[in-house]
Amino acid sequence: MKQRRTSLKDLADELGVSIATVSRALRNSHEVGDDMKRKVKELAMKLNYRPNPFAQSLRKEAPRVIGVIVPNLVTHYYAAVLDGIEDFASRAGYSVISANSHESCEMEKRAIDNFISMHVEGIIACLAQDTVDYTHFEQLYEMGIPVVFFARTCLPEKFSQVVGNGDEAAQIATCHLIETGSKRIAFVGGPNHLDMVRRRKHGYLEALRQKGLPIERDLVICDKIDFDVARQATIKLLQNENRPDAILAFNDIVTYAAFDAIKECGLSIPDDVAIIGFTDGDSAAFVTPKLSAIMDQAHVQGNKSCELLMRNINGDQTIYKEIVPMILKIRESSEKH
């Protein structure tokens, strides 16, 4: 059975005192003796009691709030997802508080701890790239706090998720590169433990198999999601004697890092090195040459994530997996002349 959040009434019932006594003890009121204060605080710690600052400040009615955790709020993708979440939440009468994990598991845990203390009604999250232990999310499940994941997910048997069809999109994009003259296609991705990376890499590999091209390990780079790391990895690839003549890039950070690396090496896009990246950003159409891109439909993903969270908050215990189709937009960077 899931645990529910401990209330003042739970503490009062356990100790056989009034709610007012418990409240005064937690506030260190002089109206309560030291022994009772000690008992109340020890029990509160044991039962993981968290005060609700909203309820305390408003007394009558706490605002309806959900929390959102993203790995990197400054990228277009996460900003667009958050916009989609806020759009749906406001129509449902909810406010949104967002936290940026900065791709750090520790900051992700801290954000969750803050959200629990704030008594948010539910949480939407995308995993930080270095999160490999999901204990903090299992705690939310045990506490009965609704959670929905998007993009990078975990614990699919416990939580609903919204993802793109990254495997199919990557396969279609890689086939396009092959059909337009590319023969040695590299995949520049992120950490292998992320399901989002695995899906997109799988699609890339399936396209190579489908078209009868060899799978070369040295053309598959899965490292930290970081502009400088991806840029240096791409430069190293392109400095090889037998360099790739095309790149499929995992997300917007990696895409623009690879784009910059190709130009840094004095190579022409797309004739020397073609490129397609996963990115929703408007800037894809404004760089030179215009960038072929796999568009995530990030705003739709945000809307759908919030819709599933609202269903859960309203009592629907079904575990959903929603797949939002991606859109391949062919521009100038992928077809060799």
Rank of each mutant, 00 (worst) to 15 (best):
G93Q: 06
V70Y: 03
Y78V: 08
K46V: 02
V32Q: 00
S95K: 02
N48D: 11
V74I: 15
P71Q: 12
E42F: 06
S98D: 06
L43R: 13
D35G: 02
N52Y: 12
M45V: 09
Y78A: 01
K37C: 13
E31F: 03
R59S: 13
Y78Q: 07
K46I: 05
I85E: 07
V32M: 04
G33E: 00
V74S: 15
K37F: 09
G84F: 09
S95L: 03
N48P: 01
L58W: 12
E86G: 00
I97C: 09
S29P: 01
V32F: 01
V65H: 12
V70C: 04
E61K: 15
K39E: 12
E42C: 00
L82T: 12
L82C: 05
V32P: 01
Y78K: 00
Y49H: 04
E86C: 05
G67M: 03
A79R: 01
M36A: 06
Q56P: 05
M36S: 03
A62T: 03
E31I: 05
S95H: 02
R64G: 05
L58P: 10
K39V: 06
Y49A: 02
G93R: 06
I69D: 11
K41A: 02
Y77W: 12
Y78D: 02
E86N: 03
R64Y: 13
E31N: 13
E61N: 10
N48T: 11
D34Q: 08
I69W: 10
M36C: 04
Y49C: 01
R59T: 04
L58M: 14
E86M: 02
Y77E: 00
